[in-house]
Design a protein around this nucleic acid. Structure first.
Lengths: 225, 225
DNA sequence: GGTGATACTGTATGTACATACACTACTGTA
DNA sequence: TACAGTAGTGTATGTACATACAGTATCACC
């Protein structure tokens, strides 16, 4: 957006709101004449002037054909809202979590559905959290956050030496000093806790830490096959 | 929608798809000329004819002004989609399931997230489905459907004589002739199967059946407190 | 007290658009 | 075999629309 984003005047805001309302009600943007009818203007130039002002402030884009008004900024989340979350499987070497390379697909869902707000989704693989009702194949919402409190369920990013990437796993997090313990929630003894000493540096991969917190578990979605 | 909803021809589907694409890309519906340019027609009547055909099948609505095309049926969910599902707790006496009286709140979520498509949500209360990872407080998506196959998880509407309303419960459904069995998924012996004989009429509430299928379990959302 | 932004009126113009009429041609179907 | 639905071409027409030019009035502000 090139235009400088200044504040709209009251009148301009009213007109922008009318454009959005029209779009919502009829599916088509209004004409200059429509705007005049709504506000009682007797000259199409009243509308034209406002549109140009609103466009120069970056809120809409004008195309030079009939009804060529495109709303760029949507205050009341009516239409353009994204409602999409990336689904992250693995984290490629040296990449931030939300880098495009890591996005497997995009799921249409309102991030605000979860608490705290989810920043991305992860597909659970395995049964390590079975006892808290998180099953293989579930999509969990993760709130991006680099630290956590003891006892919280986190998305742990564990570096895999072979593949050179980080795998995400849900674990219950406990930390005492430099010692971190990652618990599973499955009574089966094969799911033993993982113990990590943060002072221990992994020599094979100097700059990449063995472990980091990718975020906080914030809820889940299950879509039966 | 008054128009009879028939299937579109391949060409008509292509054109509908182009309308949606245009709407998505530019925010404005295409003109007849735009459609001609896209498909290589040399007469605007080619476009006009298709639009009328698509409109008569109920997929779009034509208004008699420029770019007056409104998409009513939105296959790939671009703009007009609501993304809201009602949350149904109990069913008031004599009301259809989705009656307004039964809607506790509305949750912003894409119905297509679930399979089959969810028509409403229900908040699980109790632990009867714990063994399949459906916990107390979870929101389950329900696909409205009055019948089910053996072994499917359904939302059962059970008439409660005291309150005069129907309570919704998730159960695994089995039917043999007129005998219906509703299983819980919890190894604890307190969750015994419910047996219902469909030939038995409840005398205290003559016209209201004891039991009906409210719909099919289609997935769940969990929002930790 | 002049300058610029906002908020309009009034008139005019050319073209973008929807749409009607008239025809051709193929296809499934009753 | 005739009819309805689909898929087009070609021409024509009136109006819906964006938009330019020329003004007026109010207000803030330096």
């Amino acid at each position: 957006m090139v235009a400088t984003m200044q504040n709209l005047t009251d009148r301009q805001a009213e007109i922008l709101e009318f454009i959005q309302r029209t779009l919502c009600n009829s599916g088509v943007p209004p004409t200059r004449a429509d705007i005049c009818a709504e506000f009682g203007f007797s000259s199409p130039n009243a509308a034209e002037g406002h549109l140009k002002a609103i466009a120069s402030k970056g809120y809409i884009e004008l195309m030079r054909h009939s009804r060529g008004i495109r709303v760029l900024v949507d205050q009341n989340r009516s239409l353009t809202q994204q409602y999409e979350l990336p689904l992250i499987g693995y984290i490629a070497a040296g990449q931030p979590i939300l880098a495009e390379e890591n996005v497997e697909e995009t799921v249409r869902i309102d991030p605000e559905l979860f608490h705290p707000r989810a920043d991305f989704l992860h597909r659970v693989s395995g049964h390590s959290m079975k006892d808290v009702g998180i099953l293989d194949g579930d999509l969990v919402g993760i709130h991006y956050q680099p630290d956590a409190d003891n006892g919280q369920i986190i998305a742990a990013a564990l570096y895999d030496r072979r593949s050179g990437r980080e795998a995400i796993t849900l674990k219950r997090y406990y930390r005492r000093g430099a010692k971190v313990r990652l618990d599973s929630e499955n009574s089966d003894p094969q799911y033993a806790p993982i113990e990590i000493d943060l002072t221990q540096v992994d020599e094979d991969s100097q700059d990449t830490p063995q472990f980091r917190i990718a975020g906080l578990y914030a809820g889940l979605i299950r879509r039966p096959r």
